[in-house]
Computed example of a mutant assay.
Amino acid sequence: MKKLVIATRQSKLALWQSEYIKAELNKHYPDMQIELKTFSTKADKILDVPLAKIGGKGLFTKELEIALLNKEADIAVHSLKDVPVVFEDGFVLAALTKRFDPRDAFLSEKYESIEALPNGAVIGTTSLRRRMEIKMLRPDIELKDLRGNINTRIAKLKAGEYDAIILAATGVQKLQIEDEVNYFTPISTDLMIPSMGQATLGIETLDNKELVDLLSVLNDENAYIESTVERDFVRVLEGGCQVPIGSKATILEDGKNIKFQAIVGMPDASERIEEEVIEPIENYKEIGKKIAQSFIEKGAKELLKRAEEIAFK
């Protein structure tokens, strides 16, 4: 191919990620003309309603997929955490990039950590997963919805609307805006289990062998293994992007084992199921499915259904 068009959302972070993919591809295909084409998704347009109430799956991807179908673009760059675990016919996840920092992060002007917040402090987040995990750590905290792009959210924090906010660490780091707040503290995955695929970029395209082969240079084996475990877990549970599920696989330093941390619960943390296992890396295709089945036997599907009903009220 002589020319490649990348479909991307319009936010600064989405553009950074698409420019990153463009640069990585140009390292391998220096003569290829690559351009970005921006689109606005449903989640970008509706900023006054929690995502869980808008519709769940495909909020950040649908318009980009339409652009692929209409031949307006060849590939779409997504944050993998926003990508549904089941693709519609004709679409494929062609490549997964090396993972950035997968942790959530605590941002505040006055306090250095969740533990340091005063009783009844206000934390901004709309994520049902983060709400659940914050309530596990600090039941006294008041939670307040927070929508908008990263810069908008930080501006609201600095304006005093919140005592702290929780964001994905990788987005703040990519935009190099850690210093815009007094305290930027990534949170250990032992305290807050991230969303599936957090900090990995997924490249979507139509099911086209030439394109898939071309994009294979972007693939990172470790990211593929970890995301397979995480996405299998969510897929078997039939949980979408907007329900309280944490799913994090980590290849350990020995390179022989994977630690998998998973949690499902109610947004107020009143009920939850959680598990952590260490398995040989060669079992990665079965780990997520096996733990999901264990969760199902403990009532996870019923728990998620009730959590979703609360979220969509």
Results as ranks from 00 to 15, higher is better:
Met1Trp: 05
Ile6Asp: 00
Thr8Pro: 02
Arg9Asp: 06
Gln10His: 13
Lys12Phe: 01
Leu13Tyr: 10
Trp16Pro: 02
Gln17His: 14
Tyr20Gly: 05
Ile21Ser: 04
Lys22Tyr: 12
Leu25Phe: 06
Lys27Gly: 08
Asp31Gln: 11
Glu35Thr: 15
Phe39Asn: 06
Lys42His: 06
Pro50Asp: 04
Pro50Met: 05
Ala52Tyr: 11
Ala52Ile: 11
Gly55Asn: 05
Thr61Ala: 13
Lys62Asn: 15
Asn70Trp: 08
Asn70Thr: 08
His78Thr: 09
Leu80Asn: 12
Leu80His: 02
Ala95Lys: 07
Leu107Pro: 01
Lys110Gly: 01
Lys110Phe: 12
Asn119Met: 11
Asn119Gly: 13
Gly120Asp: 04
Val122Ile: 15
Ile123Ala: 06
Gly124Thr: 06
Met132Ile: 09
Glu133Val: 02
Ile141Glu: 00
Asp145Glu: 15
Arg147Val: 00
Arg153Met: 04
Ala155Arg: 09
Lys156Thr: 09
Leu157Arg: 00
Leu157Ala: 01
Lys158Leu: 12
Gly160Trp: 00
Ile166Arg: 01
Leu167Gly: 00
Leu167Met: 12
Ala169Val: 06
Leu175Thr: 08
Leu175Glu: 09
Gln176Asn: 13
Glu180Asp: 14
Pro186Val: 03
Leu191Ile: 11
Met192Glu: 10
Ser195Met: 05
Met196Tyr: 08
Ala199Trp: 01
Glu210Gly: 13
Asp213Ala: 05
Ser216Ile: 10
Val217Asn: 06
Tyr224Ala: 15
Ile225Phe: 14
Phe233Thr: 11
Val234Trp: 01
Val236Ser: 02
Gly239Pro: 04
Gln242Asn: 15
Val243Ala: 05
Glu253Gly: 04
Ala262Thr: 05
Arg272Lys: 14
Glu274Asp: 15
Glu276Arg: 06
Val277Ala: 09
Pro280His: 13
Pro280Arg: 05
Glu282Leu: 12
Glu286Met: 10
Glu286Gln: 12
Gly288Lys: 00
Ser294Val: 09
Ile296Val: 11
Glu302Ala: 13
Glu302Ser: 07
Glu302Lys: 13
Ala311Gly: 03
